[in-house]
Computed example of a mutant assay.
Amino acid sequence: MKNMLLLYILSFSMACGANKPTPKAATTSLVADGATLQLVSDQFKFTEGPAKDAAGNVFFTDQPNNRIWKYNTDGQLSIFMENAGRSNGLYFNTKGQLLACADGNNELWRISMDKSVQVLVKDVSGEKLNGPNDVWENASNGDIYFTDPYYKRDYWTRTEPARPQHVYLLRGGKLTTVATDLVKPNGIIGTADGKRLYIADIGDNKTYTYTIEKNGSLSNKKLLAAQGSDGMTLDERGNVYLTGKGVMIYNAQGEHLQTITVPENWTANVCFGGVNNNQLFITASKSAYTLLMNVKGQ
């Protein structure tokens, strides 16, 4: 009888234990063990637009000084281009050319590595853009998406937006609007498979995710985070990196995973680079930094 009672108690305890939720494993830091921010340089006026080429070199802008810089995989810094159209956001297309939000004249440029420039977009039905800010190309079909917020520049004569602050699609030379309900769209990035687009509405302090349809239009708008962002990037796990007061990392479900503190007043943009694509490159005010990560860029 005693043995049967013990067997019953043991079975009951095991059953109860099986029904208990399994504790979640501790979240592993996305930053490499022991890694700290490494200052590249603080010689700039305001850094923006980091973009990685196929080799892992990172190009970025010093917009007020009208330059595009190159930080190569050996850690060497050099000026790639002077008189760079007051470029802001950059992105490498599949042909190894830089797409540049050149808001000196409110245009979208394509820059070859020999520094020749082609103006892809100069106006909308004869009206100037506000000032292209951030850009992404869908590698699966060459579609180009860019944001067009208004930020007053001291080199402009106009003092108000030229037109509504929209997000545009350039497909086959034709320009269309794909998002018209945002207050001030800024950061933009898409997934490597070309199926999802993230857009930050910095004017409403929110970041959204969209489905990219076959015709290039956007659908299924969903809130990712109640936080805006200047620039954005993605890692191989689908985590989204937002910028502003440091770098804030969210998973694809919108859960905040980690914050990287940056010792500057403003963190403008971020991308992955380096030979192994696991070096986070951060543009922040007058400086640029790198940080070794446990993950790679997408």
Rank of each mutant, 00 (worst) to 15 (best):
L182M: 15
L182W: 04
L182K: 04
V183S: 11
V183W: 02
V183G: 08
K184Q: 14
K184V: 10
K184L: 11
K184G: 02
P185A: 10
P185E: 13
P185T: 11
P185R: 06
N186W: 08
N186R: 10
N186A: 07
G187R: 04
G187Y: 05
G187W: 03
G187A: 14
G187F: 09
I188R: 01
I188N: 01
I188W: 00
I188L: 11
I188P: 00
I188K: 01
I189Q: 00
I189D: 00
I189L: 01
I189A: 00
T191M: 08
T191G: 09
A192Q: 12
A192F: 08
A192D: 12
D193K: 05
D193Y: 04
D193L: 04
D193T: 06
D193M: 06
G194F: 02
G194N: 07
G194P: 03
G194K: 02
G194M: 03
K195A: 12
K195P: 07
K195M: 10
K195T: 13
K195Q: 12
K195E: 11
R196T: 14
R196C: 09
R196K: 14
L197C: 04
L197D: 00
L197E: 00
L197T: 00
Y198V: 03
Y198W: 10
Y198Q: 09
I199L: 12
I199C: 03
I199P: 00
A200P: 03
A200E: 02
A200Y: 08
D201Q: 11
D201M: 07
D201N: 09
D201H: 08
I202H: 02
I202S: 11
I202C: 06
I202N: 03
G203L: 07
G203M: 05
G203T: 09
D204T: 07
D204Y: 12
D204Q: 12
D204C: 08
D204E: 13
N205A: 15
N205R: 09
N205G: 04
N205S: 14
N205L: 11
N205K: 12
K206F: 09
K206T: 12
T207L: 11
T207Y: 07
T207C: 12
T207K: 06
Y208E: 01
Y208T: 02
Y208Q: 03
Y208A: 02
Y208K: 04
Y208F: 15
Y208M: 06
Y208C: 03
T209L: 02
T209S: 15
Y210I: 03
Y210M: 06
T211M: 05
T211Q: 12
I212Q: 01
I212V: 15
E213N: 15
E213P: 05
E213W: 10
E213M: 13
E213G: 07
E213I: 08
K214M: 06
K214A: 15
K214Q: 14
K214G: 08
N215Y: 07
N215Q: 10
N215M: 06
G216L: 01
G216A: 03
G216D: 02
S217M: 13
S217E: 14
S217L: 13
S217G: 12
S217D: 14
